[in-house]
Each structure stands twice: as C-alpha cells, then as structure tokens.
Nucleic acid binder design. Structure first.
Lengths: 109, 109
DNA sequence: CAGCATCCTACTAGATACTG
DNA sequence: CAGTATCTAGTAGGATGCTG
C-alpha cells in the first residue's frame, strides 16, 4: 500500500477518464454513437475547441472510435470502442459513489 | 444514460477524490494515520501549501480525520474516517483499471 | 512542527475568426 | 458540419517568508 505502482495506476486512470469534460462526454456516449454536433448540443457549456481536444485524447487512448462519413456536409460519429467499454463499469461505480456521497451530504445538513 | 444525474454524480466523485494530489495523498494514508511531515516526505513533489489545502478539502468532505495533539512541538495526524474508507474500494478499482490499461499500452507498442 | 499569507507563474480553458 | 488557428482570461499550482 502507498506504493508507487498503485499511485501511478490511479493517476493514469484519472489522466484517461478524469478532468472536467471527459467523464461528461463518456456519459453522453453511453447512449450509443453520436455526432459531433449532437454532443455539442448535449453539452451547452463546452466549447467546440475543448470538445474536439478531449475527443482526440479519448481516441488516442483507444477509448472511443471516430467514424468519418465521406459526404457533404461532413458527418463524424463517435462511439465507445470495445476496449473503451471497460471504463463504463468504472464510470458506473464512480457515479454510484457520487450518488451515495450526495445523500451523505444531504443527511449532514 | 447520458442523463444529468449520472453525469453530476461522476463529477462530484472526481471533485472529492480527483485532481493531481488527492489520489496520491489517499494512497499514502492507506497505510494508516500519518503526520503532516511524514506525508511531505512521502510526496517530495508536493508543496506544503498544496498538501495543506488538499488535506483540508478531504477533511471537509468527511474523507479523512485531522487529529491535533496539544503539545510542543505540534503534532497533527491524518487518517481515513470510517466514511472515507468507502472511497478506498473505488480507488482500488481505479488502480486496477489503470494497471490493466498500462498493460494494454505495452501490448500496442 | 505544522501551518498561514503573499506573490507569482504556467497551464488549462474560453472567445473569436476562419476553412475544407 | 466539423473542424483548425490564434489570442486572451482564469485558475490551479508553486516559491518564499513568517508564526503559534
């Protein structure tokens, strides 16, 4: 415990699915494949730059797949890769803890 | 899925145990209670300001307990609260995923 | 020893304009 | 539609000095 391996493993996980936007993006992709424009509509707070940036990182980490339809106007769809599905379990557990914590906070008040 | 409740729950979780330092601090506290100075030694990269700040936030969120010994020189020990132990499970799972992901990355190379 | 206060920097994120 | 490029603003985090 308290060892280097454990610590860096957690840090790696947070690097891949942590941060301000990635969890939110991944949540919206649990519905299935979505277009870039649809994701923008789903997340009014995010800028197009941030959305692009975060999607690219998730793609590079092998979590999501970017499917480009060669047509005009352009159409790009994002979806979980098979490998990416392994983080959904983790996201669920993080959501569970968050929900319980919210109730915990309500009790304290 | 993709709903507001799920999304905010994950965000709440990351607010409590996410970020650059909190996971690391919590890892080091899995050994048991530790003094402030011990934690500093365990984490050469962290500044005293950051350590104090993050410990305070973890304390406010009920994850850790701050025990002050009224003596000179001062002695302060930090440890998991009973409630805080619920995040250890989650940290373990995050570490598991991170470890698997590391192996996944090695295979790709 | 365990901090607080202050100042400062570097990076993250947002705004805006433009393009295949 | 789905981006890229550039510039700016905000904030997380760091350095330093002081104190009960």
């Amino acid at each position: 415990m308290g060892n280097q391996q454990f610590k860096t493993a957690v840090e790696l996980t947070l690097k891949v699915i942590g941060g301000k936007w990635k969890p939110v993006i991944l949540c919206h992709l649990t519905d299935g494949a979505k277009r870039f424009s649809q994701l923008r509509r789903d997340m009014p707070g995010i800028t197009q730059k941030m959305l692009t940036q975060q999607l690219r990182e998730l793609e590079e980490d092998g979590i999501i797949h970017r499917k480009v339809y060669s047509q005009v106007p352009p159409k790009v769809e994002y979806s979980f890769t098979e490998y990416g599905l392994t983080v959904r379990q983790l996201l669920d557990e993080m959501a569970d803890w968050g929900t319980q914590h919210q109730q915990h906070l309500n009790q304290v008040e």
